[in-house]
Design a binder for these strands. Sequence first.
DNA 1: TTGAAAGCGCTACCAA
DNA 2: TTGGTAGCGCTTTCAA
Lengths: 341, 341
Amino acid sequence: MARRVTIVDVAARAGVAISSASSALNGRSGVSERTRSRVRQAADELGYVPSLRARSLSAKRAFTVGLVVQRNVDVLESDPFFGAFIGGIEEVLAADGYALVLQVGSDERQTLGRYRELAANNRVDGVFLNELQVDDPRIALLTELGMPAVAINSDPALASDFPSARQDGTRGVRDAVDLLVGLGHARIAHVAGPEQFLHTWQRRRAWHDAVADSGRTPGRVVTGDFTYESGRRAADELLTGPDRPTAIVCANDLMAVGLIMRAEEIGLRVPQDLSVTGFDGIALATYLRPRITTVQTSPRALARAAATLLLRRIAGESVEDVEIAPAALVVRESTAPPPAA
Amino acid sequence: MARRVTIVDVAARAGVAISSASSALNGRSGVSERTRSRVRQAADELGYVPSLRARSLSAKRAFTVGLVVQRNVDVLESDPFFGAFIGGIEEVLAADGYALVLQVGSDERQTLGRYRELAANNRVDGVFLNELQVDDPRIALLTELGMPAVAINSDPALASDFPSARQDGTRGVRDAVDLLVGLGHARIAHVAGPEQFLHTWQRRRAWHDAVADSGRTPGRVVTGDFTYESGRRAADELLTGPDRPTAIVCANDLMAVGLIMRAEEIGLRVPQDLSVTGFDGIALATYLRPRITTVQTSPRALARAAATLLLRRIAGESVEDVEIAPAALVVRESTAPPPAA
DNA sequence: TTGAAAGCGCTACCAA
DNA sequence: TTGGTAGCGCTTTCAA
């Protein structure tokens, strides 16, 4: 096996000092154009590839960032956000020679442990703060660890020193409510996500305020957990009692699907007897009939923005929050005027 | 910021040489029990965490493995295999202090490039060879690069030096066919995956042979691409002509879903007019009505087996292929006797 | 069994 | 602008 080509070889071939070769290769200033080009050429000729390990050790950077997904492993399967989000991150990282380390924690304790490990090992130069929670313990931890991080969809109100990439979803939710109100609905309920998540409250508040602003009284709120099954349960809770809502705004598509399926089993037709809206814009929402009216988010673009932010932050630049185009309402077939009373 | 605790500090505190400390910490032989315990204690007291970077540089290992997913980024979203598989890998890696680097390639050229980079940078100690193709170019590449790898569901017939973790799916497909034959179906078609994939042929052959073994003539084969949309297209192709099949075995669940949806639009009821089976066992297959009869795979367990194999392989052990329990047929509501002729 | 020292390949500082 | 060199923190010979 041929010996690895090192920067020593390159410097020797170019007839310059190692330090000059290093500076030249890394595009640092203080190197004459002539030296730079000679070094470049020597590197090319030798097929030089810098050793990431040595660079890491000496530059004290890992050239890697981390994403820790906290999710019961079984539930990961049905999370469509995941794939698109990772694809977006990768697009940005790859261009900069960075790589993504992906970790999975099944509960909070484990997740925090993973962050600690990443930091202790210096395995990554920064991490994404995804799925923010109310009083998220990771914020204190990452601050304590001094780990650069970029939040995803953090709330502006959230006091944290971490920059954030955001996509507003509240406007889409408001549009959904306005659509329903415009169609004549008066009893509009909400199926929310778990109370611990920031986005649960963002969506819930948007629904609440929009209904209130229309002069109607916000309907019942049922708390689900973003799964299909919890959508079904929400249907049972909301649709079997008196004063049944004529429209339901769900905090994500998967619950909307579950809710619709269950509603139809109960004997309600969507959208004739009941209008339903979702949130996310997953492909599944277009597979079923009726296709679901939803708020279309852009996980990939959001991930791209977040990754860009993180790399800048790691490079030491001071960065501002970034906001991509808001998630827009996509009107499909799960919404219609309420049944004549 | 406190200076990092290094092995030098530990050695000093324990009153031994650095090399002894290293040997002691790494459980190597040739260290007296007394020295070992003193070093351990010193390390504990100081809260010593070895530097992954320095270890990497000197030990020439990255303590990281790679998974390159080749998929159009947009399609990644709806791949449920992905999440479960990664969860399984993570479970095993985490226990050994290894981490997973995840990369995404949108086409073959890019994917091969990612493998090359991983190797050139020594970013990983090994990789997973997922979604094997016929004459997969990655095999030659990884061999050339000398990169340890473990294949997922490779074909025994595939000549490759890489060990493989496998879950047999052919038995499940045969069981599906047998089920249909037992119900009285005579015209059983198949919706296959893209011809480039090994598992496409594994499933296709299983379907073909099972039908033939039953004394029936294998029906038509339509090639899809594992997407929902291609399932719909397959329905159009198979169900609109003469000699319509009464049962269709699909190479994955998503196509089965698309096919069923389209079939119902065309006016065929499933399972009364048409029986359909899937493959994978994704959650979605249980959301819809009828719930889909399918072959239930175990991506998480398969990933665990593959990761275990890879770590062993990296450690230099010679490893044999591993086969986990075969994917079993789960009979649900999308299969019934054919309509009376 | 223990210890000294030579790398691993690169960056960064400082002197020339 | 260039070059020499001291680390980065660990593993691994090789003597003692």
